[in-house]
Amino acid sequence: MIEFTLWDILRNLLLATRWTVVLSLVSFLGGGIVGLALLFLRISKRKSLRSLAKYYIELFQGTPLLMQLFIAFFGLGLFGIDVPAWLAAGLALVLWTAAFLGEIWRGCVEAVAKGQWEASASLGMGWLQQMRYVILPQAMKVAVPPTVGFSVQVIKGTALTSIIGFVELSKAGTVVTNATFQPFTVYGLVALIYFALCWPLSKSSQILERKLNVAHRNH
């Protein structure tokens, strides 16, 4: 039987970590773009658009991510569309992330004082101008800590994609375990790598939050 050194194991895991990172980035950026669109629907003046975004968000927040992955992977297959694991994983994670970011950001926009809307309206600004120059700059500051904090959930969420066969860090852990029969060492390392990815993010989210509270309240 072949002997695996600790380095062999770690090297293989780190190679797979690339895919965790790539999938996380794609989900977060794609989810951010879709989430921004959702935000604008969610706070638009048209009730139908608001409801549409609300149902979307409730649907994705109200079902497990794993089910969303299964539906993206197997569900589309039923229509004769052959979905590779990476596409299903990316699609489901983007849509899932968008639902959460959209809702987080809506809270931030609504946290901006009502007087800001009224003052900017009384100065003649239209809705888009109010959003762009008055509301969003203030909402964005409030939004940074929870948004960074949520990126941790996205990274952890990518672990689920191993179930539909996408080879990222978790899946690589299983594969390496099967070859080495050292589950404790392997999964211990997997956990450490996840920790190394997530901890700096959650920590910076905390620091940012504290900074925003301490620094000048508003700028």
Partner: peptide, 9 residues
Amino acid sequence: FQQFNLFPH
């Protein structure tokens, strides 16, 4: 307005 409503940023 009573509350000034200046843009804080």
